[in-house]
Amino acid sequence: MVTDVDEDAEDTGSTLPRRQLGRLLRDARTAAGLSLESSARLMDWGKATLSRLENGKTEKVRARDLQALAELYVVSADDLEAWKELAAQAPVRSWLRTYSDVLTTKFNTYVQLESAASELAIFQPLVFPGLLQTHAYADAMNRSTQPRLPDEDLDRLAALRTQRQHLITRARQPTRLLVVVHENVTRTVVGGSAVMADQLRHVADMGTRENVEIRLLPYHVGFPTGRVFPPFIVLTFPKDAQGKPVEPSVVYAESFTGDTYLEKREDVQRFRRAFRAVSQAALDVGPSRIRLREIARSFENER
Rank of each mutant, 00 (worst) to 15 (best):
residue 246 V to E: 07
residue 228 V to I: 15
residue 260 T to R: 14
residue 256 F to P: 02
residue 219 Y to F: 15
residue 294 E to F: 08
residue 249 S to H: 08
residue 241 A to T: 11
residue 246 V to Q: 13
residue 228 V to F: 06
residue 235 L to S: 10
residue 247 E to C: 11
residue 281 A to L: 07
residue 260 T to M: 15
residue 286 G to A: 14
residue 265 R to L: 07
residue 269 Q to F: 12
residue 228 V to M: 11
residue 269 Q to A: 13
residue 260 T to N: 11
residue 272 R to K: 12
residue 248 P to T: 07
residue 262 L to N: 03
residue 276 R to D: 14
residue 241 A to Q: 13
residue 277 A to D: 06
residue 228 V to H: 12
residue 215 R to D: 07
residue 245 P to W: 03
residue 294 E to H: 04
residue 293 R to Y: 01
residue 245 P to F: 04
residue 236 T to H: 06
residue 216 L to W: 00
residue 216 L to M: 05
residue 262 L to H: 03
residue 287 P to T: 05
residue 276 R to K: 14
residue 243 G to S: 07
residue 220 H to D: 12
residue 269 Q to C: 10
residue 270 R to W: 12
residue 245 P to I: 00
residue 221 V to I: 03
residue 287 P to A: 05
residue 265 R to W: 04
residue 264 K to W: 07
residue 234 V to H: 02
residue 242 Q to S: 11
residue 266 E to S: 12
residue 271 F to I: 06
residue 241 A to G: 14
residue 269 Q to R: 15
residue 273 R to W: 09
residue 254 E to C: 01
residue 221 V to T: 04
residue 274 A to S: 12
residue 218 P to H: 03
residue 249 S to A: 15
residue 256 F to V: 14
residue 242 Q to D: 15
residue 275 F to D: 05
residue 223 F to R: 15
residue 258 G to L: 05
residue 245 P to H: 09
residue 285 V to G: 08
residue 235 L to W: 02
residue 243 G to E: 04
residue 228 V to D: 10
residue 272 R to W: 09
residue 285 V to W: 03
residue 251 V to G: 00
residue 291 R to M: 09
residue 267 D to A: 11
residue 253 A to D: 12
residue 217 L to W: 00
residue 222 G to C: 04
residue 244 K to H: 13
residue 295 I to N: 10
residue 240 D to H: 10
residue 259 D to Q: 15
residue 259 D to N: 15
residue 250 V to A: 06
residue 215 R to H: 11
residue 232 F to A: 02
residue 234 V to C: 04
residue 228 V to W: 08
residue 275 F to L: 00
residue 221 V to K: 05
residue 225 T to C: 05
residue 242 Q to V: 03
residue 234 V to D: 03
residue 217 L to R: 00
residue 290 I to W: 03
residue 277 A to V: 09
residue 239 K to T: 14
residue 241 A to I: 09
residue 238 P to N: 03
residue 261 Y to S: 04
residue 220 H to V: 12
residue 283 L to Y: 07
residue 236 T to V: 11
residue 273 R to Y: 13
residue 256 F to G: 04
residue 291 R to S: 10
residue 293 R to S: 11
residue 284 D to I: 08
residue 282 A to H: 01
residue 252 Y to S: 10
residue 260 T to Q: 14
residue 274 A to Y: 06
residue 258 G to E: 08
